[in-house]
Design a protein around this nucleic acid. Structure first.
Length: 574
DNA sequence: GCCGTTTTCGGCCCGACTGTTTTCAGTCG
């Protein structure tokens, strides 16, 4: 993706400018622009064609020219020049926790340290001693930082971090004097990957809580241990976890503050200043007399600023504050709105439970219907169903429904979209099913044109109701295949095919950003779990979170309909 | 470098923790 490359360059420019001790606001502008680029649903080259580069907030005249330059030439001259000023290794040193621009620059200037390896050697052999401001403790911390960087590479999937955070939160709940306790940060915003876990607490006594936290058996190493804030690294995953204690009457302000995002917070504070207030993690204060106006509840903080309370999933400075000012935020879909899980596997293919086990579990979760959608034959590894097995499964479903007084089971298939765009099952048989999910499971390396062609051809048959995991990505493991999303979404609109929001934590496919893009074209969605086991059905939370991050309401998600209307939709009333 | 319903110039978010200081700078979130 060009956008990622540009974001990376902008961040590198910011790094170099920091080393040069350049104007901090200029540096911030580059950092902000990098964030904006990462969240853009459209490729920069496409935006450039449409002449829309200048319209992106945070990207002004200068930076849009640099983006343009990159799209045309593959390079940004300013960056090429700046790169000459410092060896690449100095930038790598900046990425070590605890190593900022000041120290990195100092060591480069005084000792010529220009790589992490060299830094490590100097630290180990005592050659850093005697440099102004560097004593034994600093040297130990530099070595710790290097080790930490090597152990924690990158971000963690929400599906990994959320359960860990919930477990720690629940352990701390029991500590003497603990009042409110909440997960904050990007976990609360349900971002698909998170860098760390933030926990916010109110407590009558500080010491027992912090002491308990740093002694938890899951803690591998303590990074800091203060009265109101402590940080540690979790065993196994090496994910960082921060615990902060605040006063009861500041809990709401602190929760807002630590939930972020950074861009959302900055906008809130700017709004506060315009109103003659000051906003920090302790509350909203009147600048004239320092009187506290709000702080105990998050709701109160937003109200004091003249805003509607903003659901955490929307807090990315993507227009939510402007809408909250006019109390015009959309009503988001909630997990309780979902009436049926319509992408499930059984022992007929690669699932490990029977259809009645899946149905009974779905019933216990409160669903009104499910769809059994096992694989088609070409997916040999998943023991895909041939026509004969599909027919016998259909009979078993009829039998189940005759017996069942509660939940209804719909007949379906997750049919492979083959390399040439044909569907991997007889059309006549697919036509008898209630729901057909068309998915790509092979030929990931085809060109964007080919993949897009396959998907469009599959939709044009009129047999497919839903495109399964439309991008094919596995978070942190496999990139999305190349797709021309504009063409795909236009075709989906034309053939009235819905997009899946696959809740499997490693997939989350479509992603929040693409959901927003698809929604803007008027597409419909289904949130599903793709469960191969009853236990996996609880993943629906993740898909609904992605839907909320994509600004979807109940009306955008087809499987919020009751059974009759859902089936009516499937039969063509769309 | 961006941005503007008081501004096209002059602003630009705020505090905790650590380590080195002896009143503060650097880093982080």
């Amino acid at each position: 993706m060009t956008n990622d490359e540009i974001a990376h360059i902008f961040n590198s420019i910011a790094d170099i400018l920091e080393l040069k001790n350049d104007n901090p606001f200029r540096i911030r502008a580059y950092r902000k622009a990098a964030l904006v680029m990462n969240d853009l649903p459209d490729d920069a080259s496409r935006l450039r064609e449409k002449g829309k580069l200048g319209a992106i907030p945070g990207i002004g005249k200068d930076l849009s020219a640099k983006i343009e330059e990159y799209v045309q030439t593959g390079k940004i001259a300013t960056f090429e020049e700046l790169k000459k000023e410092f060896p690449e290794g100095v930038l790598a040193i900046l990425s070590i926790p605890g190593m900022g621009p000041r120290t990195s620059r100092l060591l480069y200037d005084t000792c010529g340290i220009d790589s992490i390896e060299k830094l490590e050697t100097y630290a180990r052999t005592g050659r850093l001693k005697g440099i102004k401001g560097i004593k034994d403790k600093t040297i130990v911390n530099i070595l710790k930082g290097i080790a930490l960087k090597r152990s924690i590479q990158g971000r963690f999937p929400l599906g990994t971090a959320l359960p860990l955070g919930e477990a720690i939160r629940d352990e701390l709940k029991g500590v003497r004097g603990v009042g409110s306790i909440e997960l904050a940060g990007s976990i609360r915003r349900r971002k698909e990957t998170v860098a760390d876990i933030d926990i916010l607490v109110t407590a009558d006594e500080l010491k027992p809580l912090m002491d308990r936290f740093v002694q938890l058996k899951d803690i591998e190493r303590v990074l800091s241990h203060g009265a109101t804030r402590s940080s540690a690294i979790l065993r196994g995953t090496h994910i960082q976890i921060d615990v902060r204690v605040v006063e009861k009457d500041s809990f709401g302000a602190a929760l807002a503050y630590f939930t972020g995002s950074k861009a959302h917070n900055i906008k809130l504070r700017e709004l506060a200043i315009k109103k003659g207030f000051k906003l920090n993690e302790y509350g909203v204060f009147d600048t004239n007399n320092d009187r506290k106006i709000a702080g105990s509840s998050e709701q109160g903080v937003y109200e004091a600023l003249g805003l509607q309370w903003v659901p955490p999933e929307l807090r990315e400075d993507q227009g939510e504050i402007e809408l909250a000012l006019g109390h015009g935020l959309p009503e988001l879909v909630a997990v309780g709105d979902i009436r049926g899980d319509v992408h499930l596997h059984t022992i007929y293919s690669d699932g490990n439970s029977t259809l009645s086990q899946m149905a009974r579990h779905a019933e216990s979760l409160g669903y009104r219907y499910i769809a059994i959608t096992d694989h088609s034959p070409s997916l040999g590894i998943a023991r895909g169903l041939d026509p004969g097995k599909l027919r016998s499964q259909m009979q078993e479903i009829d039998a189940f429904n005759r017996r069942s007084r509660g939940i209804r089971v719909l007949k379906g298939m997750e049919v492979d979209i083959l390399g040439d765009g044909r569907l991997d099952m007889d059309a006549a048989l697919l036509d008898k099913l209630d729901i057909v999910i068309g998915s790509i499971h092979s030929g990931f390396k085809q060109s964007g044109e080919q993949i897009t062609g396959r998907l469009v051809k599959a939709m044009s048959t009129g047999l497919v109701d839903l495109i399964g995991h439309p991008s094919g990505r596995l978070i942190g493991e496999r990139d999305a295949y190349e797709v021309d999303w504009g063409t795909l979404f236009d075709a989906a609109k034309q053939y009235r095919v819905a997009m899946e929001i696959n809740s499997f934590p490693l997939r989350l496919d479509l992603s929040d950003v693409m959901i927003r893009k698809a929604r803007s074209r008027g597409l419909k969605f289904m949130t599903t779990t793709d469960s191969h086991d009853p236990k996996q059905m609880r993943y629906m939370d993740y898909g609904v979170s992605a839907a909320r991050r994509g600004w979807l309401g109940e009306g955008d998600v087809v499987n919020t309909k009751d059974r009759k209307d859902f089936v009516r939709w499937l039969k063509g009333d769309r």
